[in-house]
Design a protein around this nucleic acid. Structure first.
Lengths: 113, 113
DNA sequence: ACGATAGTTCGATGATAATCGAACTATCAA
DNA sequence: TTGATAGTTCGATTATCATCGAACTATCGT
């Protein structure tokens, strides 16, 4: 299970991406990742069970929105911003424009560890 | 039931819009509307039952993507492009960029009126 | 090797959504 | 008023999806 499978840019579809972003939790994850550049799953769980978070990250990964990389015992996630901008110009601008305005925290207040 | 209820731009949410666009039929409807400016429900049904189409148009309407106006016995739909561009800059660019490239017809070849 | 931590996978449950026929509403034309 | 057309609403069925506990895998530190 370790080496995650990420779709290549040409495999991305709007439909899949829109489905991934149509869930409030996942939309917040994406907007949060834009602010912090990188985060582990645990940092964004907001008290939700790990299995739920794993599920959401998988959908974001499969849609091509997020890249996940194992680093020791925890997994770093980052937005695939460059690739998304290249493939769907404007899309992420729209998604992330909301971000700067509303700095509403997504999960835990912001870190510990 | 006649006078449709359309959300105002400030009532639009990305989440709702993304959900609306996460269905292949609805995504095609939107991309098609961008090409033809206006169309009745029947023009885009692609052989599907009216009740299904009515359902999809309602979701597009409720999400604020489409404006529907009754004209006699048939109802004209148009994309709310200006308002969408104002509220979520870049979003529709991304959605419609696919359109010009792939001119794949959505429903029936292109009817009268 | 042991325990702890981070995350995944599995499976069940409940919620949300798509599909479609049938009945209904509204408008127009004869 | 009758018939035809365009679309909506209702209700049932099915499919898709989110949620979460439990068991599992992998890595690190001691």
């Amino acid at each position: 299970m370790r080496p995650y499978k990420h779709p290549t840019p040409d495999q991305l579809t709007l439909e899949r991406i829109f489905h991934a972003l149509s869930d409030p939790i996942r939309l917040e994850i994406v907007q949060h990742l834009a602010r912090v550049e990188m985060a582990t799953c645990g940092e964004l769980d907001g008290g939700r069970p790990k299995s739920s978070m794993s599920h959401h990250f998988r959908i974001l990964r499969d849609a091509g929105l997020v890249h996940t990389q194992a680093e020791g015992t925890n997994h770093q996630n980052r937005l695939r911003l460059d690739e998304l901008n290249a493939r769907f110009p404007g899309l992420m601008d729209a998604v992330l424009a909301q971000t700067e305005a509303s700095s509403g925290r997504v999960g835990k207040p912001r870190r510990k560890r």
